[in-house]
């Protein structure tokens, strides 16, 4: 198990989700969830599984969107039922990863969330985030799918730094 900065893990999660085919906004939110989840000691298995099926990530993002929408209408708490423990854990991490204040209670397979959309989250962040080698490899592999292979043309013709003269 190696440790990383929060920013590294979050950025890797975003790129990996993008590499898995998740649209940009959902990938951004997934990266924020992933690092929150790992920092809070969450299991890596559900994250790895979600990255195998991008539709899972899109569906989780939609469910969170519905919670936020309900909160904006004054509904509190908002109840979310999820039987799959892995997905339930990710939903909880997703709520805690929101920039706004979130109170979350868990009762069996039900998550009860109260959001204060204009109040910032007060959850602390550690100085290091653990990341297991299997998940890291999976993240790196997916992230690499977002990079355009290097070529002489892209290096020299208008891309990158352009003309270079030194003094």
């Amino acid at each position: 198990m190696t440790t990383h900065s929060w920013t590294e893990v979050q950025a890797l999660g975003i790129k990996a989700a993008s590499g898995a085919g998740v649209p940009p906004a959902q990938a951004l939110a997934f990266g924020a969830m992933l690092v929150r989840h790992l920092a809070d000691g969450g299991a890596e298995g559900p994250l790895a599984a979600a990255l195998e099926t991008p539709q899972t990530i899109i569906s989780l993002a939609l469910r969170i969107e519905r919670v936020v929408e309900a909160a904006s209408l004054g509904v509190t708490p908002i109840s979310v039922i999820e039987d799959n423990p892995g997905q339930r854990a990710m939903l909880i991490s997703w709520l805690f990863a929101l920039p706004c204040h979130a109170d979350v209670r868990i009762q069996g397979n039900a998550i009860e969330a109260s959001l204060m959309l204009t109040a910032p989250s007060q959850r602390s962040r550690p100085d290091r985030v653990p990341l297991g080698p299997t998940l890291e490899t999976q993240l790196q592999t997916l992230a690499a799918k977002t990079y355009v292979p290097d070529s002489d043309a892209s290096r020299n013709a208008g891309a990158g730094a352009g003309q270079m003269e030194l003094d």
């Binding site: 977002t146 292979p149 892209s154 891309a159």
Partner: peptide, 23 residues
């Protein structure tokens, strides 16, 4: 706009001439 595999250098391409627009 894209990110090159070469040290993740951000680059700018021509959609109609260069490879990688899908990324």
């Amino acid at each position: 706009w894209y990110v090159s595999a070469a040290k993740l250098e951000p680059r700018l391409g021509d959609r109609y001439l260069d490879v990688g627009a899908e990324l």
